[in-house]
Design a protein around this nucleic acid. Structure first.
Lengths: 339, 339
DNA sequence: AACGCTAATCTAAACGTTTCGATCATGTCA
DNA sequence: TGACATGATCGAAACGTTTAGATTAGCGTT
């Protein structure tokens, strides 16, 4: 900018005024300055600007795994929304790892991001401290945590799983395996609660042996399914609480020589774009990814626009059960259907 | 830092020296300073540091679509690599849109990213200018462009498609539909060349009606497939040059009342993590996503480490044909197989 | 002619770091 | 004792912006 000012024989203040339109500058100088800008190929340095202004027009976004299609879609939507609003997005993947997440958030805050969208990992204790210290608005995505009182967008997980399990029960299933993700994040609690509630409502017992835990990865779903399938009295249906794990479930079923849905029914949380065309066509709980991403972006953009003092807003969206053909009717129901 | 210095009754220079270890500071002062840092909860401001140092320890990464599993995987690998190296990643999705891409790259450069990894869109003219102006190292990913002489990581696309088409020909297919992405990026040229080469090698004619173009999206694959399937003499096999489009292909096949592989064989570029378990199990050309991401990251990290003047390096990796069961043998071959 | 008003422009401080060179105390050696 | 090297610390400039307040010129009023 200094060079531009010299070339145009004006002060830097005038150049700044012209660029930002913060003051009127005469046509004559305007022209000289614009010419100089072109000649020199001047580009405003956003870092210097950020330092002075105290805002970077950048937000931080952390997700556990970007390869999980749910997060991929949400990230994509969020990225677009902020792009439109003139913000850049710094993306971090925590790989479900607590320390990584905390480090990354600190890193983002050091870089003066104007806001954060966090699909968190682990208990919220450290997250809470970080967020309290930092003076930037935070939106929690998918996963809330107790004690962190801030904007959030979540799904009605309990209801969604309740619907799915009830659907299986209505089909005649009585022993329904359930593969949960680690219990330290809120959705896993709520989803489990939905499972239990559905069993209870139907008057079915909650058998501990039917519940397995994994750490969200395909291999965890594989191992959990192997265990379920080698039970003495094996389940007739399996529900997987996240979608990378269901791939593992399908692999285990194949490896053990069974087939879905003939021998065992499968449903899972989170939809796939290809579920309609590849067989078995998975019955899933679809999350409204577009809406989730947009709402999260809007909440944050609203705070960034200055609405700092409004009380925390928690948006709860509804999942949708996508019934396809990976679950088959059982017993009396199957007979009445085939009759 | 000023507050810390005051609290510790030292100068800011000393605080800086301690934090960065750039000079020895006495145990006594060290202790006072560390105490002050803790008391105040001081965090170094990375923006001010960037301004002074001329480096942000941030890189820019632009990809066409993050929802394309190929890019998702590559982004994930790159993100991890830079995370390990202490860099942040600014992610941009260009949505295959030229202006968006150029704007985003300019935005990234304004923010003083230390380097760029670009899976580009459009012809390289503007990209070239931007890259030449900018004084940062650039690595091209997946897509090179003429005239932009810089580090690059690409696949041997021609060879990979040649192998896949030859495989189909060996199965007895003679009329093989080919669905290409837009022709303005290098891989689409090379893949088409592989298709043509395979036909020619086998002495088959190149029939223009068998070649269709789409813009990388599922719907484009759907439309292209619809056109191919309504040909008077329809192809017995279809190869889709990218993976979102193949979903459209499968949908079109289903909607038209055919089934794969019984009525028509399908193969495509880019693998899916679930291809092994869902039917039809797609035969694909798998790209070594891990290697691609790592190599791209390494090329850039090497430049960032100071190796600026080395000549441009272009790494070409090999694809791998994953033969599954979405393509069936035809004619004489089929009979000898079933005999 | 003196005054005040407005519009255009400029000067200089500030944002929070890093770093060069200066300063100063201390110990060593001739 | 004086000269000098060493090590620790500090002062101040610089990075490239923004912006408050000062300055200046031009013009209309009285």
């Amino acid at each position: 900018m200094l060079h531009v000012a010299e070339a145009a024989r004006v002060s830097v203040a005038t150049v700044s005024a012209l660029i930002n339109g913060t003051a009127t500058v005469s046509p004559e100088l305007s022209q000289r300055i614009e010419q100089a800008i072109r000649d020199i190929g001047y580009k405003r340095n956003a870092i210097a600007r950020s330092l002075k202004m105290g805002t970077t027009r950048t937000i931080g976004l952390t997700v556990p795994h970007i390869t999980n299609p749910f997060f991929t879609d949400v990230v994509s939507v969020i990225q677009q929304a902020f792009d439109r609003a003139g913000y850049a997005v710094m993306l971090c993947c925590t790989d479900e790892h607590l320390n990584t997440q905390d480090d990354q958030i600190r890193l983002l805050l050091d870089r003066m991001v104007d806001g954060l969208i966090v699909a968190r990992v682990g208990d919220g204790a450290i997250l809470k401290r970080i967020v309290d210290d930092a003076n930037v608005p935070v939106v929690l995505l998918d996963r809330v945590c107790q004690g962190v009182d801030t904007d959030a967008v979540v799904l009605d997980n309990q209801r969604a799983v309740f619907d799915a399990i009830t659907y299986l029960i209505d089909l005649g299933h009585r022993r329904i395996g359930y593969i949960s993700g680690s219990f330290d994040i809120s959705p896993m609690h709520d989803r489990m609660a939905g499972y239990r509630e559905a069993l209870q409502t139907a008057g079915l017992p909650a058998e501990p042996e039917l519940v397995r835990f994994g750490n969200f990865h395909e291999v965890d779903g594989y191992n959990a399914t192997m265990q379920l399938l080698s039970l003495h009295d094996r389940p007739s249906a399996i529900f997987s609480a996240n979608n990378p794990m269901v791939i593992g479930t399908m692999k285990a079923i194949r490896d053990i020589g069974l087939s879905c849905p003939e021998d065992i029914s499968v449903a899972c949380f989170d939809d796939f774009p290809w579920s309609d065309v590849f067989r078995p066509q998975l019955t899933t709980v679809a999350q409204p990814v577009q809406a989730i991403g947009e709402q999260a972006a809007n909440l944050l953009l609203d705070r960034l626009a200055g609405n700092r003092d409004a009380p925390p807003r928690k948006l709860t969206l509804k999942g949708r059960l996508m019934i396809r053909n990976s679950c088959r009717p059982l017993g009396a129901i199957a007979q009445s259907v085939s009759a």
